[in-house]
Amino acid sequence: MIADLLVQGIQMLLVLLLAPLLTGFVRKVKARLLRRRGPPVLQPYRDLLRLLRKEAVVADGASWLFRVAPYLIFAATWVAAALVPTFAPGLLFSWTADLIAIVALLGSARFMLALAGMDVGTSFGGIGSSREVMIAALAEPALLLIVFTLALLAGSTQLSTVAGFMASPEVGLRVSLGMALIALVMVAIAENGRVPVDNPATHLELTMVHEAMVLEYSGRHLAMIELAAALKLLLSVSLVGCVFVPWGLAAPGAGAAAYPQGIALYLAKLAAAGVLLALFETAIAKMRVFRVPDFLGAALMLALLGTLLLFVSRSL
């Protein structure tokens, strides 16, 4: 029991500590691809510490919700990220929430963020919130259909069970899984506000979504939101990793010796995902906001097709 609790605690700390690293790594690789030197990989940690130490400037018209929201957003995202298997499935609390609940927890965080964007009453906050809910309204059904595909195959919505099933030899190559993978990556890009849907590096542009919502934040509040964004990126990568690249997860009951290996492989997966994401982002241009529905519509259709194929034939 104590050991289980310890492993669960390690998982929670691990995602928290690795999240800024992943963000910094992606930035660094992107900069190198553009032949810039780029900020150090550890820069996000320094930014967070600096933000934490600074005083928070809050706009005059801001309410209590503006000050409470960052902590709630961070907490919901952290809980969700800690429930996705990273280096070992079947941890002590992994049955607390299945994949649907994890998706919904991210929804709760987004709900608070969109409200926080509207709190001060500037036009930028409103534009960010209204676009964010539009993107979410299209991304969430796609995500749930992907969950359906996985759950139908694995016979469970529990991520640990899904990961175990995907690592077993009975999976094989399936059309529906391929569709689900592509759709999941598209949705993850949109949900995390990455290029081509949104640009995490932009400010002072009418095209921004996430950055527009958090425009009024500063100090410790901004630190919470930045950390939550980093956690969400890590969660998406862990999710794709544990479902589609489940190899190297420490098997339940394999003992403590399997954990270092699991962690090492997890780090390798994160690095690979970071390089791929940076490559993709440098190779593609950001699209207009009203092209985003087409992008997400394609993800939705792919996910629906994948699910339908499974409903029609269990072998596809």
Binding site: E55, V57, V58, A59, D60, V120, T122, H203, L215, E216
Partner: peptide, 9 residues
């Protein structure tokens, strides 16, 4: 914590 006018870019 300091109160100030909204930034709004």
């Amino acid at each position: 914590l300091r109160r100030g006018p909204a930034w709004g870019c």
